[in-house]
């Protein structure tokens, strides 16, 4: 069964929609109800299309839905507008990753809910 959470989170998963606090200007992703500064007034924005690798690792023993992709790379990426996102970095070998390398976000298939279930899509990163 498709999870209600996947559906609810489409704007952030598909378009990297974030919220910017109108008080302190901090961009939150995923979008928040209350900012760290205590304010509750936000305007809609997007995470920048590009960013920099802050930290990374390679997964060699993968959970069931990802076995076919192993080994695959996971990184913490700091987007150009300061938002930090944990994401897969695809289309590259583990040896190609390094802290400080530039990436851009792309739209990819995340996983399939079994053979007959829905296909989950979202963002990943590729090296630029």
């Amino acid at each position: 069964m498709p999870s209600p959470r996947y559906w609810r989170e489409m704007p952030q998963r598909y378009r990297l929609e974030a919220s910017q606090c109108t008080e302190c200007g901090k961009v939150s992703f995923p979008p928040r109800i209350v900012c760290g500064c205590g304010a509750r007034d936000f305007k809609k924005t997007n995470v920048s299309e590009t960013g920099t690798i802050v930290s990374y690792t390679t997964i060699r023993v993968a959970p069931d839905a990802f076995v076919i992709q192993a080994p695959y790379n996971i990184a913490i990426v700091e987007a150009d507008n300061g938002v930090r996102i944990t994401t897969q970095v695809v289309d590259c070998a583990p040896e190609e990753l390094a802290i400080g390398k530039k990436v851009k976000f792309v739209f990819r298939k995340l996983y399939e809910e079994g053979h007959c279930g829905i296909i989950n899509y979202g963002y990943k990163a590729v090296l630029v």
């Binding site: 076919i68 992709q69 695809v90 289309d91 792309v106 739209f107 990819r108 298939k109 995340l110 296909i119 899509y121 990943k124």
Partner: peptide, 13 residues
Amino acid sequence: PGLDEDTITISVE
């Protein structure tokens, strides 16, 4: 196509 690419992801890009 990559393992995570299909007609939908190609169309988006």
